[in-house]
Simulated assay, not measured.
Amino acid sequence: MSVTTTNLILGPATLYQGTFGATEPADTAVNSTPQASAWTDMGGTQDGVTLSVDQTYTALEVDQVVDRVGSRLTKRELTLETSLAESTLENLSVVLNGGTAATGAGYKSYEPLFASSATQPNYTALLFDGWGANSFRRRVILRRTLSTDAVAMAYTKDKQTLFKTKFSGHYVTSSIAPFHVVEATS
């Protein structure tokens, strides 16, 4: 087997947040920074940005054949995990799916959402830019996400405070995929 060394990828990604339904950059703009009015750079991350797509296939079986005769996709879990190195109140609001921010002379504050559990959650869109094959840029857009795991922020003597978080991707519509990947070719 031959190895194409230019297909090997190494390097960080830049993570952006937008509202659910934010205008997505055109595929032709894969080498450009997303429009600042629609996408907010979430700052530094630690230990990278990890996209996971866990697909569950259910086997089709018949009595007459001992082998699996087919499979059907019955579940897909899409997650993005990262540790936000910039522990700002703005990033805290994103990882806690919204809330109320206030600013005044010499201060800013944040309070999480605390309404009834029956209310609709505040979905967000995520976009990250990183490296792709041949040292070109790759962009991944997760169109409808929620932070669904515990959010931790530790204050310790010898470690940086981070917002460790996990976002889950969700169904959008029958005509819009939950995520999109584009890679530059030149």
Score class of each variant (00 low, 15 high):
Ser2His: 13
Ser2Gln: 15
Val3Gly: 09
Thr6Val: 12
Thr6Gln: 14
Gly11Arg: 09
Pro12Ile: 04
Thr14Phe: 05
Leu15Ala: 05
Leu15Ile: 03
Tyr16Glu: 13
Thr19Glu: 11
Ala22Ile: 03
Thr23His: 01
Ala26Thr: 12
Ala26Gly: 11
Ala26Asn: 13
Asp27Lys: 04
Val30Glu: 04
Asn31Gly: 06
Ser32Trp: 02
Thr33Lys: 03
Thr33Arg: 02
Gln35Phe: 04
Gln35Trp: 07
Ala38Val: 15
Gln46Pro: 06
Gln46Phe: 08
Gly48Arg: 01
Gly48Gln: 06
Thr50Glu: 01
Ser52Gln: 12
Ser52Tyr: 04
Thr56Ala: 02
Leu60Val: 04
Asp63Phe: 10
Asp63Asn: 14
Asp63Ser: 15
Val66Leu: 07
Arg68Leu: 04
Gly70Ile: 03
Gly70Tyr: 13
Ser71Ile: 03
Arg72Tyr: 12
Thr74Ile: 10
Lys75Val: 01
Glu81Lys: 06
Ser83Asp: 07
Leu84Met: 08
Ala85Pro: 07
Leu89Phe: 10
Leu89Pro: 04
Asn91Met: 08
Ser93Leu: 09
Val94Lys: 01
Leu96Lys: 10
Leu96Val: 10
Asn97Ser: 08
Gly99Ser: 06
Ala102His: 02
Tyr107Thr: 03
Tyr107Trp: 08
Ala115Thr: 12
Ala118Glu: 15
Tyr123Pro: 12
Thr124Lys: 11
Ala125Gln: 06
Leu126His: 06
Phe128Arg: 00
Gly132Lys: 14
Gly132Ile: 15
Ala133Arg: 13
Ser135Pro: 07
Ser135Val: 08
Arg137Lys: 07
Arg139Gln: 13
Leu142Tyr: 00
Arg143Ile: 05
Arg144Glu: 14
Arg144Ile: 13
Leu146Ala: 11
Ala150Ile: 05
Ala150Lys: 05
Met153Ser: 09
Lys157Pro: 02
Lys157Ala: 14
Asp158Ser: 10
Gln160Trp: 07
Thr161Asn: 12
Phe163Asp: 09
Thr165Ser: 10
Gly169Met: 04
His170Asp: 09
His170Ala: 07
His170Phe: 15
Tyr171Ser: 11
Thr173Met: 09
Thr173Glu: 05
Ser174Glu: 13
Ser175Pro: 00
Pro178Thr: 01
Pro178Trp: 00
Phe179Tyr: 11
His180Leu: 08
Glu183Asp: 13
Thr185Met: 06
Ser186Val: 10
